[in-house]
Design a protein around this nucleic acid. Structure first.
Length: 594
RNA sequence: GGGGGUGUAGCUCAGUUGGUUAGAGCACCUGCCUGUCACGCAGGGGGCCGAGGGUUCGAGUCCCUUCACUCCCGCCA
């Protein structure tokens, strides 16, 4: 006989009846009828109802055992009568008549209940994460995460990818996010950085001839948290392939994601061949490079309408003359919505810091007209043109935003989400994937007005390498792509620049001298000079994939031991002060008053 | 760094216009109850109303400051 258990709490059924068994687990819930006591015993695998009555001399003792005590009990499996079967649990056909019980682990009074589905404050959940993790929903989420990662590993290995580990202590890089730094004891005054991603290493793996690499890679970025962004650390399915073009990477990911999302979710997948949308189109039609394609609303450019003589909307016309643009969102068949609906959206837009959204609804009696506060400014011909551009019809409403391009894109992007939500246009039972492609290589930094890399400095520019227009670098597009699902950016990737001479030129445009590149990216630039294969890759975020599959809005719900928003681990008390001896060894002084 | 929300019993929350001794459910303790599965019933203990200051005859409630948690903006190649 095994010491702690013969079965788990999730496996007993009618076939075990009359058997004497041993179970170990936590007391999830008690229902005390005075002379009859039900005890729900829980472990990782499920819940088993155990029962004892006063005829047993240990009845009084068991009555007093608090919830969440760990016990071992010996009992006999009894089939339940039909009326008392519980269909909600896997063991609901039977119960266990308790013969004896041993307490294995006592509990203090609980800071939070485990059996309840109630929501609790993050503070208490994170401090007592080990209790929180016993709760059903998050327990299942973490198991899902484990299964997802195993599945990915297995699939990647099946198609010939090799899994490698890359260093955790590496060097700081000037591009990208803030680094986490680790002082070096043996090299006083010098620091390691934790990798923001194994970017240079995975390219070096390609130069080393391994052809296809992947890793479930921890990534560290010292930036502020969001609901879908852990402070500090997160995981990527990091992968890189040699001798490939963009579409080869897309194939690998589409195949993997279709299998993965079909296996772990029942939701529909909107397009099995993920649409490719250029960055430019995405910014025009959705105002964002991470569009939610479940949302049918689209944006159109109506700037030219406000250059017409027969349009009298003078405020917008004047702004357009001075370089502003006008874009619109059309909602289908909203003519019967109350005035308060439209004004509510305008008010909301103003709260978001924009100048608001003008709107009119298309009508037709004898001729086409526009109803609404600004409707009178539009001639019939201009309305017909608007209908053509926006693909709208009579009964639809056109919302207008006028301003600088960035501002218009921004407000219409969030208005698109807001209006779709208000009108309930989003099918929550769907995954909508798409690729955003053709990112510009460079962009203008709004603050410094200098040219900087818009995405990844190691990306390969598009076009014949000897004909690249380096004079007008803002026109350069890169083999750089994002994959988006339901409006969530899952990953960026790129075909890499494996030509050192070109790399120097591109970095020069972004303001890095040859010496800068040689010293900051020494490992990689050096390697590219010794026969580097064309290569590319991508790195989808594991946490966000699991969030989508678990239908969770917060990354902490799929992370076993997350930090809070201030990047503190309330359970382990990290970060913490260290001793003077430790500091001395590392040659560090802490500034006073800080 | 900036903006919003929340903070009352171990936990989840209610608390009216500023007015007696701050309530409920769960948990905990006592008692009753042999078919519950969020069991039920009766009773009990448990409160620096996040902290500090102010207004007032009187503050959980109004004002100021501050702290914690959270959401968002900035940031995240």
């Amino acid at each position: 006989m095994k010491r702690y258990r013969t079965h788990t709490c999730g496996e007993l059924n009618r076939s075990h009846k009359k058997k004497q068994i041993t179970l170990s687990g936590w007391i999830n819930k008690k229902r005390d009828h005075g002379n009859l006591l039900f005890v729900d015993l829980r472990d990782n695998y499920g819940i088993t109802q155990c029962v004892i009555d006063k005829s047993n001399e240990i009845f009084k003792q068991i009555e007093k055992i608090p919830l969440e005590t760990v016990v071992k009990l010996i009992g006999v499996v009894v089939e339940r009568s039909k009326e008392t079967v519980n269909k909600n649990i896997s063991t609901g056909e039977i119960e266990v008549k308790i013969l004896n019980i041993d307490i294995l682990g006592e509990t203090k009074e609980l800071p939070m209940p485990v059996f309840s589905d109630q929501e609790y404050s993050e503070e208490i959940r994170l401090k007592y994460r080990f209790l929180d993790l016993r709760r059903k929903k998050i327990h299942q989420n973490i198991i899902l995460r484990s299964k997802v990662i195993s599945f990915i590993r297995n699939e990647m290995q099946k198609v010939g990818f090799l899994e490698f580990q890359t260093p955790i202590l590496t060097s700081s890089s000037p591009e990208g996010a803030r680094d986490f730094l680790v002082p070096s004891r043996l090299n006083p005054g010098k620091f390691y950085a934790l990798p923001q991603a194994p970017q240079q290493f995975k390219q070096l793996i390609m130069v080393s001839g391994f052809d296809k690499y992947f890793q479930i890679a921890p990534c560290f970025r010292d930036e502020d948290a969001r609901a879908d962004r852990s402070p500090g650390e997160f995981y990527q399915l990091d992968l890189e392939m040699s001798f490939v073009e963009q579409e080869d990477i897309f194939d690998v990911i589409e195949t993997l994601f279709l299998k993965l999302f079909k296996k772990f979710s029942n939701k529909k997948i909107l397009h099995e061949k993920f649409p490719r949308i250029s960055f430019e189109d995405a910014m025009l039609k959705y105002g964002s490079d991470k569009p939610d394609l479940r949302n049918p609303l689209e944006i159109s450019d109506l700037t030219s309408i406000f250059e017409r003589e027969d349009v009298k909307f003078d405020i917008f016309k004047k702004l357009v003359k001075n370089g502003s643009i006008v874009r619109s969102l059309t909602t289908k068949n909203t003519k019967d919505k109350p005035r308060s609906f439209f004004d509510g959206i305008d008010k909301w837009a103003k709260e978001q810091g924009s100048s608001g959204l003008a709107y009119f609804t298309l009508e037709k009696e004898d001729k086409v007209s526009a109803k609404g506060p600004v409707g009178k400014f539009f001639s019939e011909n201009s309305l017909l043109e608007i209908m053509k551009i926006t693909k709208s019809s009579i009964g639809d409403t056109v919302f207008l935003s006028c301003g600088k391009k960035n501002d218009v894109e921004k407000i219409l992007s969030i208005a698109r989400n807001k209006i779709a939500e208000d009108l309930d246009l989003i099918d929550n039972d769907t995954f909508s994937f798409c690729w955003i492609i053709d990112y510009p290589m460079f962009e203008i930094d709004e603050i410094t007005k200098k040219i900087k890399f818009s995405h990844n400095p190691f990306s390969m520019p598009q076009g014949e390498l000897d004909k690249l227009d380096l004079i007008n670098p803002l026109n350069l597009k890169a083999y750089q792509y994002d994959i988006v699902c339901n409006g969530i950016e899952l990953s960026s990737g790129a075909i890499r620049n494996h030509v050192p001479e070109l790399m120097y030129k591109l970095f020069e445009i972004a303001g890095y001298s040859k010496n800068d590149v040689d010293s900051k990216f020494s490992g990689m630039i050096n390697a590219l000079s010794y026969g580097a294969p064309p290569h590319g890759g991508i790195a989808p975020g594991i946490d966000r994939i699991v969030m989508l599959l678990a239908n969770e809005k917060n990354i902490r719900e799929v992370t076993m031991f997350p930090m809070n928003q201030n990047a503190q681990d309330l359970m382990m008390n990290a970060p913490s002060k260290v001793s003077d001896e430790q500091l001395k060894e590392l040659n560090l002084n802490i500034k006073k008053n800080s």
